[in-house]
């Protein structure tokens, strides 16, 4: 007897969640960012972001089906970070990295923020 550890299970599960998102299947919240709507799964948002954890862990917010973020949040950067949550890939480029850092700080995604800071430092 033994334990068969499926090494790619976490990635397979996350890929399926991203497929559900792309088909708006079982998405249970719409995140409104400066006029753009993003459909997502609360469980993924809460698992990846301290900000969403603090919002949805309040019982009165648990059933929210829409949430508007602070207008200072850049929708392009939010989209990048949402893709990161569902793929583990963080697309950084010189033009957006500072705004992405600010958005990651806002969403309380500290490890991503640290990566943005290291990216900025490596560029100078």
């Amino acid at each position: 007897d033994g334990c068969f550890q499926f090494t790619r299970h976490a990635g397979d599960v996350l890929l399926n969640f991203n497929r559900l998102r792309s088909r708006s299947m079982l998405t249970d919240v719409t995140v409104q960012v400066d006029g753009r709507d993003f459909h997502a799964h609360k469980a993924i948002l809460v698992a990846c972001s301290g900000f969403f954890y603090s919002v949805f862990m309040h019982p009165e917010n648990a059933n929210l089906s829409a949430i508007s973020l602070d207008p200072k949040v850049d929708p392009e950067c939010f989209s990048l970070l949402l893709d990161f949550m569902y793929t583990s890939c963080l697309n950084l480029n010189d033009s957006l990295v500072l705004a992405t850092l600010n958005t990651a700080v806002y969403l309380q995604m500290e490890h991503v923020a640290d990566t943005c800071r290291r990216f900025i430092k490596s560029r100078h």
């Binding site: 033994g2 790619r8 397979d12």
Partner: peptide
Amino acid sequence: YEGVNTIKEMGRSIHEIPRQD
């Protein structure tokens, strides 16, 4: 989950949800 007798299964672990039906 690194037990003494853990066998690493490298293949897919679950079904793949299609991009569309």
